[in-house]
Amino acid sequence: MSSRITGSMILPFLRTASATDPDKRRVRLQDDVTSLFDRFRNPLLRYLWNLGLTLPDGEEILQDVFLSLFQHLDRGKPLYDARGWLFRVAHNLALKRRGRSRRDSEGREQAGVEDLAVDPAPNPEDRLASSQTQQRLMAVVRALPEQDRRCLFLRAEGLRYSEIAGILDMSPAAISLSLSRSLARLVRSAERYTL
């Protein structure tokens, strides 16, 4: 499979479309979908987890996402931006699922604190400072409006403004405003901390 993936992913599926035998085409399609799974499973799972889903729920959703992708392509529908498509479908399925099973946020926060406690910083002072910075930063992120948080997570996964806009059903200008608002809060928090 081609590694030329920069958001738009038409190239890999040209290979699939070019197969004339339906059975061969489907075998190739399965390989292509699996390759996309290898490439995007971790970013997608991380995003779903940050949306508040448990990891098992996230894994289940990803199975549905990639099966849907297979069906989408098998029906001959176009796929101009695989990454955007995958995140959008995962996001929508996650919102449906989240209403039914919400992760215990207290447990998550506790786990986060434990992770910080084993931060392999070079010395105790640095470690303390580093973990305090992380805690402060995550506290600011958690306090952001949900849509702003989603923008931030998607941007951190490398998605472009237009892709995020498609996933969250917002305009690119609104994405830009949301991100600048969130970052400004992070800056203010850092300034308060250092003064």
Partner: peptide, 19 residues
């Protein structure tokens, strides 16, 4: 700097959790 700090924390907080 805020972007850099956030990306570091985001990666660090999420990656070790993934099975």
């Amino acid at each position: 700097n805020a972007i850099t700090d956030f990306v570091h924390v985001y990666q660090r907080e999420s990656d070790p959790e993934l099975p």
